[in-house]
Design a protein around this nucleic acid. Sequence first.
DNA 1: TGAATTCCAAGTATTTTAGTCGGAAATATT
DNA 2: AATATTTCCGACTAAAATACTTGGAATTCA
Lengths: 149, 149
Amino acid sequence: MKFSTKGRYGLKAMFDLAVNHGEGPITLKNIAHRQDISEHYLEQLIATLRRAKLVKSVRGAQGGYMLNHPPEEITVGDIIRSLEGPVGPADCVMDADSDECSNQESCVTRLVWARIQESVNDVIDTTTLADMLEDQEKMNNKKNYMFYI
Amino acid sequence: MKFSTKGRYGLKAMFDLAVNHGEGPITLKNIAHRQDISEHYLEQLIATLRRAKLVKSVRGAQGGYMLNHPPEEITVGDIIRSLEGPVGPADCVMDADSDECSNQESCVTRLVWARIQESVNDVIDTTTLADMLEDQEKMNNKKNYMFYI
DNA sequence: TGAATTCCAAGTATTTTAGTCGGAAATATT
DNA sequence: AATATTTCCGACTAAAATACTTGGAATTCA
C-alpha cells in the first residue's frame, strides 16, 4: 500500500518547482540535487509530468522546468495520478472495466476498498501545491519561534 | 498504491469466515473455492492470520478454521496489517525509525503522506467484519426489493 | 487403518521497481 | 561559428517483490 518512488519523488520535485515558482526555468540538475534524487531517473518522471501538462520546459542552455499552472491550481492528486496511474487499494475500484471480480455489484469487500479509495482521493484532490507552501510557512514560523524562546 | 493479494485475499477469506461464524470449523478448501483463490497460497495467508491470533484452527479430518473473536471485534485494519505490515503511502510515516528521510520534521511532503495515512487508517480501523456483514444484509434487501418491483 | 485436513519449508516464474547508459537535439553565451 | 549547457529520447538492466507451486510431515476423525 505504498506509493512507488515515482509518486514520492514526483511530488517532491513538483513542490521544489512550486517553491521556486516565478523565478524562471529551474534545471533538473538542481532539483535532483536538492531533493536527493538520481538525475537520470527524475528525467523520466518529469517527462511524464510534462506530457501531463503539469510542467513546461525550456530547452538549451539556461533552460529548465517550470510549473505550467499556478500552485493553487495543481493538486497532489494531479501529480500522483499522472505518475502512478489511478489510485486505489484494488483494481476493482480503479478501472471501470475490471473484469477481475466477477461479482462486482454484490461484493462487500469491494465496498471497503471503495471507502478507502474515496478517503485517499479526498485528501489528494483537496491538497494543492499552494497548500503545501502554506504548510511550509507555518513550519518555518514555528521553528523561528522555538529558536527565540 | 494497491494492496497486494495478501491483503485482498486475506480480507475475502476473513469475511467468508465471518459469514460462516458459529458453524464450526470451515475448511481452507471451501474458502479457497468460494473465493476463487489458490488453496496453497491461501494456506500461507491464513497461517499469518493464525499467528496474529485472528483465526484459530482445528487440525485433522473435519478440521478447519474459525474466527478467533466475534466479527464485531475484528477490524479490517487488524487483517490488513497482519498480512501487509504497516499501512501508509511512504516509509517515513510508517516506521518510527525510518532514517530514509533526513529532514524528518521539516518535510512538507511528509505532511501530505501523514494525512493520507490517517484517512486510510480511519477507514480500516473503524470497519469491522460485523459492519461488512451488515453491508451484505443491506445489499441483499435492496436486491430483493429490486426483484419484486 | 485410511481419509481428510492443517502445518511447514523450499523453490520458482513473472512482474515491478528503480534505476543506468549513451547519445541526439535545442539554445544561450562567448 | 564554436562551445557549453540543458532538455529529450529510447533501450537496457540488476534487484526486489509478488504470486504463486511443490512436496511432504503431522494430526485427527471415522
